[in-house]
Design a protein around this nucleic acid. Structure first.
Lengths: 208, 208
DNA sequence: AAAAACACTGTACATAGTCACAGTACCTGT
DNA sequence: ACAGGTACTGTGACTATGTACAGTGTTTTT
């Protein structure tokens, strides 16, 4: 589906709102009036563009024959949207599995799809070693559990008994954990000492 | 609500089916054809009866202006978890109210209480002027709408027709909008040129 | 038994609404 | 520099649609 221009989105939103409020699609004239056009044909042009881009379907010679094609239906107002409750992991006790119940600080529910990759758990960040990557002390990061990660990804890693968040780089076959803060040093490791706990897929910050 | 006759129920059901299937109400002629009438006016009579009994509303002189009133859509409205669907505001059109429906890019549902202060809307951040505050290009920030803000808060402000996110400082009774990026300059303003649209209450980032 | 509602047919007309044609202006990518 | 998309204004033809008026016969309610 093609991208819409601002104006086209405005028209689409007006149609959607009309449909929701009145249960009926607007006419060209109504669109023109709502948008401030002096000619109905401005609306016609937009409708053609919306149809060409696959957002609506126009039924020819049919009064108010505008049908929305993009997911959000006219009638179906509230669907039970799928949500997942994720554990928030606070400070991780040395040596314990990261997801151990003891480490669960609270539960936070997030709607599925909030992040393009579905997270497995949330981790409360301690310290500012990743502040230049926009990850601050106290932030919740969404983590997808995996033991695989690629160079360049931000990962949750375990070194011996400590859990840390860093950017993973692979240099000359050796993993390097890069902080995003000049005050910290890269950590160069032997592959066997590094355990990837998961990859960073999103972030939630509460400014209070 | 009065009781319907068998025939009236059939007509109502046809309207409902039509609406569901085509997203648009039928005309008198379509009803007549579907029911086997030889005259449109048979349909008209039924519609009048349905309106009188409170099942539909007819918009006069309006093509396909049949609105269902019975609580068919009320069903399935139950939410087990308190969530709020917030509009995501993309680029804000010059001069338009920030929350204007035309600016809405998408809707995102967040559970109540995810942020300590309940946001009014989400705003997609453009540019990196706040990167040292951990707000990056493309992030969604949660904004609580208010015209009041205190020195030190991160605010969504409007200067003439432009909307921007900055830290608000009040110095010698003059508002200063501070970026969090050395490449940008503080904006010192006359109080009357500054409109506070809301305050920053949280942030959501999708790392994809 | 009469009134009122139900369930239609049939004609006619005004208006609501779509859509084609013509034209202006701006902006963007090649 | 040019083609094509975007974003409109303006006119007018033609069609779709709603609705009034005038009937016919049947069933239900009072």
């Amino acid at each position: 589906m093609d991208k819409l221009t601002t104006r086209q989105r405005q028209v689409l939103n007006f149609i959607r709102r009309s449909l929701q409020k009145n249960g009926i699609a607007p006419t060209r004239a109504e669109i023109a009036e709502a948008m401030g056009f002096h000619s109905k044909n401005a609306a016609v042009d937009h409708l053609k563009a919306l149809e060409r881009k696959g957002f609506i379907r126009l039924h020819s010679d049919l009064s108010r024959g505008i049908q929305l094609l993009d997911g959000s239906e006219a009638a179906g107002d509230e669907v039970d949207l799928p949500v997942t409750t994720l554990p928030v992991i606070g400070s991780v006790a040395a040596g314990s599995p990261i997801e151990a119940i003891e480490n669960v600080e609270q539960q936070v529910t997030v709607p599925d799809g909030l992040f393009r990759q579905q997270p497995t758990y949330l981790l409360r960040v301690r310290g500012d070693s990743m502040k230049d990557a926009g990850i601050l002390d106290g932030d919740l990061i969404a983590v997808r559990k995996t033991s695989q990660a690629q160079s360049g990804q931000i990962v949750v890693a375990r070194i011996q008994d400590e859990v840390t968040v860093k950017t993973l780089l692979i240099k000359r076959n050796r993993p390097v954990l890069m902080p995003a803060n000049d005050a910290y040093r890269p950590i160069i490791m032997a592959p066997e000492d590094l355990t990837i706990e998961g990859v960073f897929v999103g972030l939630i910050r509460d400014a209070g």
